[in-house]
C-alpha cells in the first residue's frame, strides 16, 4: 500500500496545481451574475496539454484521472473533466468533448449539456453514446452551478458503447465521488479563509470552538472521501465505488449547510464564490441514486451472499 504518488504522478499533479493556481482558473464574478463560470480557457488548457488522456498512460492511470477530477472541482470555475478523463477512455476515446453524462432520468436537466459536443448515457440497459447536434439541446435556467440543459427525445443517433456497463458505472461513481469531494474541499477552503479573517466579538470567528469542531468534522469526512474515491478508481470494485460515492453524498448535506452557516450573509451573495462549490454539491448529492441508493447498493453488493 502506498499513498504517495509515483514520480510521474507527482509531476502530473504538480503541473496541474500550477495551472489550477493560474489566472484562467481564478475567481471572478460572471457577466449578469450567472451562477457558474464555464471556463472554456481552462477547459481548453486541460485538453491541449494532454491532461484528459492521463488514464491511458501506464504510470498515471485512472487513479490520476480521478485525482485530477477532484483537483479541478476545487476551483471556482468550471471545466468538464470527469467524463472526459474517466469515462471517455472506457466508452469511446474518439468522442468529441466536452461530454455530458445522463446517469439518471434522461428527461431531467443535465449538467454540461449546453457546452457539450457529445453525450454518454449510463442506463439500466447498458451504456450508449451519441454526438450532439444543435437541435438536440435546450439550455435551461437552474439553481445549480452548472450549465444545464434538456435533451430533445429522439433527436440523437445513439450507439451502444463497447464497454462493460458495470466497469463504466463503477468508474463513474469514483469520478462523481471525486467531483463532489473536490467541490466540498473548495468550499471548505473558502470558508476556512473567511473565518480566519472575519472578526466578531473582538476575535476571529474561527477561534470559536463551536465553529472549529464542525469544520474539523467536515475536514475529516472530506479527507476520507478523497482517499475512498482514489481507492475506488484503482480497484473499480463495485463495493469500493458505492462506498466512495455513498459516503461523500451522505456527508455532503451537513457539510454544505455548515459552510453556508459559517459564511453568513456573505455566502448568500453572488459576489462571493461559495455558491460555485455548494450548488454543484447540491446537485451531485443525488447522482447515481444518491446517498441512500449508493449505500443500499453497497449493502446489497457487500452482503449478497449473506
Amino acid at each position: 500500500m502506498r499513498f504517495q504518488p509515483n514520480e510521474d504522478q507527482a509531476t502530473f499533479l504538480s503541473v496541474l496545481d500550477q495551472m489550477a493556481e493560474g489566472d484562467a482558473a481564478a475567481w471572478k464574478t460572471s457577466p449578469e451574475w450567472a451562477r457558474f463560470e464555464w471556463s472554456e480557457t481552462f477547459d481548453g488548457m486541460l485538453e491541449a496539454n494532454g491532461f484528459l488522456d492521463c488514464a491511458g498512460e501506464e504510470t498515471l492511470g485512472l487513479t490520476m484521472a480521478v485525482a485530477m477530477t477532484h483537483r479541478v472541482a476545487r476551483l471556482p470555475v468550471l471545466a468538464e473533466c470527469a467524463a472526459s478523463a474517466v469515462l471517455r477512455p472506457l466508452v469511446g476515446p474518439e468522442l468529441p468533448r466536452p461530454i455530458a453524462v445522463v446517469d439518471g432520468d434522461p428527461r431531467d436537466a443535465i449538467r454540461f449539456l449546453p457546452v457539450a459536443r457529445s453525450v454518454v448515457h449510463i442506463g439500466e440497459g447498458g451504456v450508449r453514446r451519441a454526438v450532439l447536434n444543435p437541435n438536440a439541446v435546450s439550455p435551461v435556467d437552474s439553481l445549480f452551478a452548472y450549465p444545464m440543459g434538456r435533451l430533445a427525445a429522439g433527436a440523437l443517433e445513439w450507439q451502444a458503447a463497447n464497454a462493460d456497463p458495470e466497469t463504466v458505472r463503477n468508474a463513474w461513481r469514483a469520478a462523481l465521488a471525486a467531483e463532489l469531494g473536490g467541490a466540498l474541499k473548495g468550499g471548505l477552503d473558502a470558508v476556512v479563509a473567511h473565518v480566519k479573517e472575519r472578526r466578531q466579538f473582538g476575535r476571529p470567528l474561527g477561534s470559536f470552538q463551536a465553529i472549529q469542531h464542525r469544520l474539523a468534522g467536515a475536514a475529516t469526512r472530506i479527507e476520507a472521501a478523497h482517499w475512498l474515491a482514489l481507492k475506488a478508481a484503482q480497484s473499480l470494485d463495485p463495493v469500493d465505488a458505492a462506498t466512495a460515492l455513498g459516503y461523500v453524498q451522505d456527508a455532503a448535506t451537513r457539510i454544505v449547510n455548515d459552510l453556508h452557516q459559517f459564511m453568513g450573509a456573505m455566502g448568500l451573495t453572488l459576489e462571493h464564490p461559495l455558491h460555485r462549490w455548494t450548488y454543484r454539491a447540491r446537485l451531485l448529492r443525488s447522482a447515481m441514486g444518491g446517498a441512500a441508493g449508493n449505500l443500499e447498493d453497497l449493502a446489497e453488493r457487500r452482503w449478497r451472499a449473506a
Partner: peptide, 14 residues
C-alpha cells in the same frame, strides 16, 4: 477536533 482545527485547518487558538 481541536487539533484538526488548529494544526490541519490552521484556525486560531480559542
Amino acid at each position: 477536533l481541536g487539533m484538526i482545527a488548529q494544526r490541519w485547518l490552521d484556525l486560531p487558538r480559542e
